[in-house]
Design a protein around this nucleic acid. Structure first.
Lengths: 182, 182
DNA sequence: ACCTGAACACCGTTCAAGT
DNA sequence: ACCTGAACACCGTTCAAGT
């Protein structure tokens, strides 16, 4: 026995971490395993399926956690996604296909109802995604200019300060939703 | 004068509507304009920038609307995104680059504060994205699904009801957040 | 200013064939 | 069962050159 499906998923996660989602091609995953690209299709039907397996792996620590606090679960979920490069994108797209039947959504739904669970999860995914995109854009220096024709006045935040503020912004949004649920 | 930047954006939106985000390649947009792929780079620096321009165009009706009701603005935003194939994906990724400085976020922030605005927007994007992904999966499944000899039993969800339920699910989540803000 | 033609360095996926 | 080798039909982007 040479490579197993788990080997492929782990190799893919290494490539994701190193190259980002855009650089995470089947060909590079194959190279990481020192194998021809076509060999991957013996373990996985296609790239989309592989990405779903990667998403499961990223989220696994949260699934394993036994917390019954929705607030904590969301924070842990966000942390798990942010721990891997482009992890939020990978998890969010993979989960969209099974909204209403994901394990975490069901866990949270038992605590706050299904509307609340969906609201919390979509917010968590969205915030993680934009945190990650923003950080990456910042690292790249590729931030796009704000709408033309206007200037920032004193009431508005400095874009530079935004990124570090994203973590606490997440928890404040979370508390708004939880207050609405109470 | 042959093609203008606006022509490129409109052609790209036609290709997006017809082929979806995955099929919306620079080469296909060029073909839509009956032009060589390289010609596009005279109007637009790269694909990412073109996608941002497309996002602006998709969201434009909401920007033009004069409503001061955050609930209505979110519903209009979602409708605008859902009106174009994969529109939610296009807008969500393009907006992530300028979170904190998008025009709609500023409009809503004046009404409910910046934390509330971000929470509402991220929820709206997330819900629109998963609505669209789900509908697409449903439409794609409908081509394969109609199993002649088979009937759905009570343990299975009604696919037809699911899609329309996403609309009201969105508004219930919206109300949860708005209640938390009140 | 706007576009062509050709090239470069890539993609995901399939499939017969090897071991 | 797991993999190679070769191919197919694509990508985004660059760049000299045309008009």
């Amino acid at each position: 026995m040479r490579n197993t499906r788990a080997d492929v998923v782990l190799a893919a996660l290494r490539v994701l971490q190193a190259q980002g989602l855009e650089g995470c091609s089947m060909r590079r995953v194959a190279a990481e395993l020192e194998v021809q690209p076509s060999a991957l299709y013996h373990h996985v039907p296609n790239k989309q399926h592989l990405l779903a397996l990667m998403a499961d792996e990223i989220v696994d620590p949260v699934t394993a956690a036994e917390s019954r606090d929705p607030r904590l679960l969301c924070i842990e979920l966000r942390d798990a996604m942010l721990a891997v490069r482009d992890g939020a994108d990978v998890v969010a797209t993979a989960t969209a296909f099974r909204l209403g039947s994901s394990e975490i959504e069901e866990r949270i739904a038992e605590l706050v109802g299904s509307d609340g669970a969906r609201t919390l999860l979509l917010y968590t995914f969205g915030h993680a995604q934009s945190t990650q995109t923003h950080r990456q854009a910042e690292a790249f220096g590729a931030l796009i200019d704000p709408p033309a024709g206007r200037h920032r006045d004193d009431s508005e935040a400095e874009p530079a300060a935004m990124s570090s503020d994203l973590d606490s912004s997440f928890e404040r949004g979370l508390d708004i939703i939880l207050k609405g649920l109470a």
